[in-house]
Design a protein around this nucleic acid. Structure first.
Lengths: 388, 388
DNA sequence: GCCAGTGTTTAGATCGATCCAATGTGATGG
DNA sequence: CCATCACATTGGATCGATCTAAACACTGGC
C-alpha cells in the first residue's frame, strides 16, 4: 500500500527539468494522451501522428510490407500494393523520413550556409542549390552567418546535428578552417564556396583574377590610363584576387599602378558612395574604376552623381557579379557576370557526389566569368585623356 | 554444410532493389564495413559515426547519463559531467538530433516555402525567418516553387516528411488550399504569407489595400488627376487588393477611374518595360501611375526613358515593397515599405507559438505599411496638369 | 510425397537518441 | 537499526522507420 502511494507520487515530484528548452511540456502531455488513446482503442480521428504501423493494422498486413510499398519495391504483389496505397490515402499517412534515415543510415538534406540572403548574389546561389537538391528529393537546410564567425560556428553546429549529406559553406570573413572542421565533425563533407578556407575540402570559386583582368583590359582598350580599383575589404580573399587581376592587366599594358587609387571600403553601396572623395583628393584623378563588385559600383555611381559628375560619360566604371539591378541602373553597368545560380546547381551536385563517394579527390574549381559590356564603361573624355 | 553455403550466398543474391533511389548502394557497403569493425574491436579512428554509446563506453558511464549531460540536466554530478564532456570533445562526438527528435516527439525545424529567392522581397523575408529560427535553435528547411503549383505540392510533401514544427508558405498563384492540406497532413501547422489561401490557417499579409490607397492619395495630393494602375496579374490576391486601394482613393477624391488605365502585366521588370505603350494609346494620357510593385515600377521607368519621357519630372510613379534598388534607381523611387525581414521574424515566431499550442485561434494579420517619398513622385507638369 | 525454386510476406533486431521506473548511496533522524 | 529522503545513475522499453533472415504458399519435376 505504501509502495503504491510512492508510485503515484513520484511522477509528480518530477522536477520538470529546465534543460529541455520548452518543447518538453507539450511533449509530455502528448505522450500521455497517446497512451490513453491506445489503451482505450479509440478510433484515430483526433490529433495524432499516424505511423506505418497504423497503415499496416488498417489493411491487415505487416509493417515490413507497408515499408516495401512505400519504397516502390517490386517484391510486393500488385493487389497488396493497391490495398496499402488506398489505406495510406484514406487515413492521410505522412512518411517520417527522419526515422527512415536513422535506420537506413542515409540522409536526405544538405546544409547551405551563406553570409546573408539579402545579397542577391547569394540569393541566386541559394536558389540554384535548392533547385538542384529538390530535383533529387533532398531538402536544403538554410543557415546564415551575417558575416559573423561566431554565428557561423553556431549555425554549422546546428546543421551538423541534423546529419546532412554535406554542407555548402560560403565562409564568413576571418573563418578558421580548423574550427569549422571541429564543429562539424571529421566525416561531414564540406564544399567551400566563394572564399578561401584552410582545409582539405572541395572549393568552388569565381575566377576573380581573370574577371578583374578582363574588366581592366576593357577599360584600357577604351583608352583609359588612370584606372582605380575601388572598394572591398583588403583582407577578403576575393578582393585580393580581383585586385591582383587588375594589377596584372595594368602591368601588361605598361601602366604603373598608383597605390592611392586602390581604395578600400566595406562592400556595400552606402560605404562606397561615402568614400568617393578619396578618388579625387589629388590631381591627376583617375578617369575610370574597376569596382570590387556591383554593389560598390552602384554606390560609386551615386557618389559621382552627388559630386556633379556623370558616370558613363565623364567617368567609366565596371562592376563585378552582374546582379539584376546592374542592367537597370543609370547608366546600365558594365560588369562581370558570374552566373551564381548555375554555380549553386553545380555545388549541390558536387556535394551529393561526394556524399555518395567520400573517397573522390577534392576539387578546386575556378569558374570562368564573362564581361558584360553596357553603358557605364565609356571612353575617357578627350580633355582628360590626353592632358597630364 | 549446404546450409552454410546458402547462407553465404543469399546476401549476394539480393536483387539490389532499385526502389531505393541511389543512396542505398553506399549504405549497404557502409553497414558492412561497420559490422566488420565492431567485430574486430578496432579503435574507432576510421570513417565511422560516433554515437552516444561510444561516449558512454569511453568514459565508463551509461547512455542515459551521457544523454543527461548533453541536455544540461542538473541531475548529474559536476565531476561526471566534466568527465563526459571531456570525452565528447576528445572523440569529436556529434549529436544526432533526428534520433533525439524521434524519441522525444519534438521537432527542431520549420519549413519555408517561397516562390523564388531571387525576388529580393522573399529573400529578405527568408532572411528574417531564418534569423528568428536560428536564435531559438531551429533550422530552416527551404523550398521554392518557382510559381508552379505542381512543384509546390512536391516541395510541401518533401518538407512535411521531415516533420517540421510547421510550414511558412507563400503560396504559388492558383494554389488550392485543400490540396495543400492533403499533402502536408492534417496536423501540421501552416502559416500563409502574402497571398490568400483557402483554409483555416494563420495568415499574414501586407496591408495592400491601405498601401495602394496611401500611394494614390500621395499622387492626388501632388495634383495628379489622371492616375494609372500599372502592372500585376489580375487574379493574384495581392494585386486585387492593391487595385482596390487605388480605386478607393480615387473615389474619395471624386476622380473617375478610367478602366483603360488599369494595365495588366507579369510582375517583372521586363514585362513592365514592354507594356509602357499601353499607357499612351489615347489622349489624354495619365500623368502618374501607381505600380503593382517595385519591379514593375522600375520596368516602367525604363520603358518611359526609352520613349523619351522623364520619370520623376514629366511622369510620376510610386512602387510597392521598397526593395533595395528602389532607393538607387534614377530617379529614386517613391514606394510603399513593407519591411519583409521583420515580417519574416514575426512569421517564424508565430509558427513556433502555434507548434507549442495548436489550439490557439488562427490569426489573420494585415501589417501596416509605410509611404516612402523619394523623387519619382513629382507634381504633374503644368501644361498637362491644367489643359484638357 | 519430397525437393527445389520462385514469389510474397513477415517477425524481430536495429538505427541513436530519450523516457521511465527502479536502484544504489549516503546522510539524517527517530 | 530501520525508515526516509535527496542525489546520482542506470537498464530496458521506446520513437517510426528499415533490414535481415526466415517462413509461407505455390508450382513443377522426379
Amino acid at each position: 500500500m505504501l509502495r503504491q502511494l510512492r508510485k503515484s507520487i513520484t511522477p509528480k515530484r518530477d522536477k520538470r527539468l529546465k534543460p529541455f528548452p520548452a518543447k518538453c511540456e507539450k511533449k509530455a502531455l502528448f505522450i500521455h494522451k497517446r497512451q490513453r488513446e491506445d489503451s482505450t482503442c479509440m478510433s484515430k480521428t483526433p490529433r495524432q501522428k499516424l505511423t506505418l504501423n497504423d497503415v499496416a493494422r488498417g489493411c491487415g498486413v505487416s509493417r515490413a510490407t507497408v515499408s516495401l510499398v512505400l519504397r516502390g519495391s517490386p517484391l510486393v504483389h500488385a493487389d497488396t500494393r493497391a490495398k496499402v496505397e488506398a489505406e495510406i490515402r484514406r487515413i492521410g499517412y505522412i512518411y517520417n523520413r527522419a526515422a527512415a534515415n536513422l535506420r537506413s543510415q542515409t540522409c536526405s538534406s544538405v546544409g547551405l550556409v551563406v553570409n546573408d540572403l539579402s545579397n542577391p548574389f547569394f540569393a541566386e546561389f541559394a536558389a540554384g542549390v535548392d533547385e538542384a537538391l529538390a530535383e533529387v528529393g533532398y531538402v536544403t537546410l538554410l543557415g546564415s552567418t551575417g558575416e559573423s564567425v561566431q554565428r557561423q560556428q553556431a549555425v554549422l553546429a546546428s546543421l551538423a546535428e541534423h546529419a546532412p549529406a554535406g554542407i555548402i559553406l560560403s565562409p564568413a570573413e576571418g573563418s578558421d578552417g580548423a574550427a569549422v572542421a571541429r564543429v562539424v565533425g571529421a566525416h561531414l563533407p564540406i564544399l567551400v564556396f566563394n572564399r578561401e578556407l584552410e582545409g582539405d575540402w572541395d572549393y568552388f570559386v569565381m575566377d576573380n583574377l581573370n574577371g578583374a583582368r578582363l574588366a581592366t583590359e576593357h577599360l584600357i582598350a577604351l583608352g583609359h590610363r588612370r584606372i582605380a580599383f575601388y572598394g572591398g575589404h583588403r583582407d577578403s580573399s576575393s578582393c585580393r584576387e580581383r585586385r591582383e587581376g587588375y594589377r596584372q592587366a595594368l602591368t601588361r599594358a605598361d601602366i604603373k599602378a598608383e597605390p592611392r587609387w586602390c581604395i578600400e571600403t566595406a562592400p556595400t553601396r552606402l560605404e562606397a558612395a561615402r568614400q568617393v572623395g578619396a578618388l579625387f583628393v589629388r590631381d591627376p584623378a583617375p578617369t575610370a574604376a574597376v569596382c570590387y563588385n556591383d554593389a560598390v559600383a552602384l554606390g560609386l555611381q551615386l557618389g559621382l552623381v552627388a559630386r556633379g559628375r556623370h558616370p558613363g560619360s565623364d567617368f567609366a566604371l565596371v562592376g563585378f557579379d552582374d546582379i539584376p539591378e546592374a542592367a537597370l541602373s543609370t547608366p546600365p553597368l558594365t560588369t562581370i557576370a558570374t552566373a551564381p545560380r548555375a554555380r549553386g546547381r553545380q555545388a549541390a551536385e558536387r556535394i551529393l557526389q561526394r556524399a555518395r563517394d567520400p573517397s573522390i579527390t577534392v576539387e578546386k574549381r575556378s569558374f570562368p566569368v564573362q564581361l558584360i559590356i553596357r553603358e557605364s564603361s565609356c571612353p575617357p573624355p578627350e580633355a582628360n585623356g590626353k592632358a597630364p
